[in-house]
Design a protein around this nucleic acid. Structure first.
Length: 337
DNA sequence: AACGACAACAACCGCCTGCCC
DNA sequence: AGGGCAGGCGGTTGTTGTCGT
């Protein structure tokens, strides 16, 4: 038995891997090394391909804009590198992770900012922290909702496939929507509720891409919100109003036509069959609202939000973040620590 | 020139999840 | 139902390059 090679890849190995994948595709990674004449494990080949050899990846220094995006998304999502990398075209999760660990994290630390909580270490900003905490909750809920809907959507596709063989041929399927319904809290927020907020400064954040894919008009009943969200969860409607509360029950997620919809994210392509909406229907007790369109206080009595168009403590958070991002992303700079 | 400290990046490892049988 | 497999993900380690002394 031939011992598998480890460590850095040689040019010859790269060429073998590239040539094989270009000709045959990667197929099963486990069997690839043998077929390609490489003494590597399949996993190693996959990593080399996805992190280095793939033609659609961008190499080189990250731009200031990319840095800012990483910081913002990290504040929202934590160490979910693949999710963060998904918002940075042509960058890999490994690259983003390395960049964070070797540069941004240290830079924040040097500036006296905790890279986990994003609080100033000596002068914790409860408002900014609170805000971020709620934003993180929204994003978590959104990702869970997306994942769930994708699962349901796949299930639906399978059911339709089954029906295809057991029922008379259906009319031709509706054309695919031009874009998936917007479930993305950042997008909605930027577009509606927070035009002046720090997260929506011009060009500051690439529109995250929803991976949702809807294949049909239907109503799906989803039994639970999510295991992680059975206590405090987030509700959001298309106008950007959001709330945090305790879920008593979760009714259903509808994918249907616009006529049934009152508050929903939707696409209107002019074709009835192409009108989709997603209707979140949570029954919850509001314990602390983060309605972005009005000032609210959470259960601890802190002002966690603030009218966007009113001067309030929200602006402190905005200032805090603008300043932070400017400092972190400027090429400078000995912070004098 | 030699050495050590540090930064940057590539690669590995272990765990987890989803799928298939 | 559960075991095996493939692939994805995040944490960690190893290697190489650079800079200061």
């Amino acid at each position: 038995m031939v011992e598998l090679k480890k460590g850095p890849w040689t040019r010859e190995e790269d060429q073998k891997l590239l040539a094989y994948i270009e000709e045959h595709g990667h197929g099963s990674w486990r069997s690839l090394p043998t077929k390609a004449g490489l003494q590597r494990c399949g996993k190693s080949c996959r990593l080399r391909w996805t992190n280095y050899l793939r033609p659609d990846i961008k190499r080189g220094k990250l731009s200031t804009q990319e840095e800012k995006t990483i910081i913002r998304l990290h504040a929202l999502l934590g160490n979910r590198w693949s999710a963060i990398a998904a918002h940075l075209p042509k960058r890999t999760d490994n690259e983003v992770k390395n960049y964070w660990n070797t540069r941004l994290k240290k830079r924040l630390t040097r500036m006296g900012i905790d890279p986990v909580t994003y609080k100033p270490k000596n002068n914790p900003d409860r408002h900014a922290a609170n805000l971020l905490s709620h934003m993180a909750q929204w994003e978590t809920a959104r990702l869970e909702a997306e994942a769930r809907l994708v699962r349901e959507s796949k299930l639906l596709s399978k059911l339709q496939l089954l029906r295809k063989f057991t029922a008379p041929p259906p009319p031709p399927p509706p054309p695919h929507p031009a874009a998936p319904p917007c479930l993305d809290v950042l997008k909605v927020w930027r577009a509606t509720a927070a035009p002046n907020c720090f997260f929506s400064s011009p060009g500051s954040l690439e529109s995250p891409t929803s991976t949702l894919n809807f294949c049909s008009t239907s109503t799906l009943t989803v039994p639970t919100v999510s295991s992680a969200a059975q206590n405090d969860v987030i509700s959001m409607n298309s106008s950007g109003a959001c709330g945090v509360g305790k879920v008593n029950s979760y009714k259903e997620v509808k994918l249907g036509t616009m006529e049934n919809s009152s508050t929903s994210s939707h696409l209107d392509s002019g074709n009835n069959l192409d009108d989709y909406h997603v209707d979140y229907d949570y029954d919850y007790d509001m314990t602390g609202s983060v309605d972005l369109a009005s000032v609210n206080h959470n259960s601890e009595g802190y002002n966690v939000g603030g009218a966007i168009d009113e001067v309030g403590e929200f602006e402190d958070a905005a200032d805090y973040w603008s300043e932070l991002l400017n400092l972190v992303s400027s090429p400078m700079e000995s912070p004098g620590l």
